[in-house]
């Protein structure tokens, strides 16, 4: 089973990388970009019978730092 874990900075946490990307898009002349937030996509191939609780624990223990990041799991 394939899982896609999206790790994003919590709202309100300053995102210097998103801000730099935003600036570069502005510099390229793309108008109408209101905000940019950069995150990570982590793809896992796991056993078909893996429980949600275990996926959640993997995210909390390692894949995301819940002090500053949120995560969302998508089953492919």
């Amino acid at each position: 089973m394939k899982l896609r874990i999206f790790v994003t900075l919590k709202p309100g946490v300053l995102d210097p990388q998103g801000r730099a990307i935003h600036k570069a898009l502005d510099g390229l002349g793309f108008a109408g970009v209101n905000d940019v937030r950069a995150g990570k996509l982590i793809e896992l191939d796991v056993a078909d019978d893996m429980q949600d609780a275990q996926v959640d624990e993997m995210c909390r223990k390692l894949l995301a730092n819940t002090v500053i990041e949120n995560f969302r799991v998508e089953r492919a």
Partner: peptide, 11 residues
Amino acid sequence: LPGALMRNAGL
């Protein structure tokens, strides 16, 4: 320790 160390604000 509490908190996290993020990318420098000026990159």
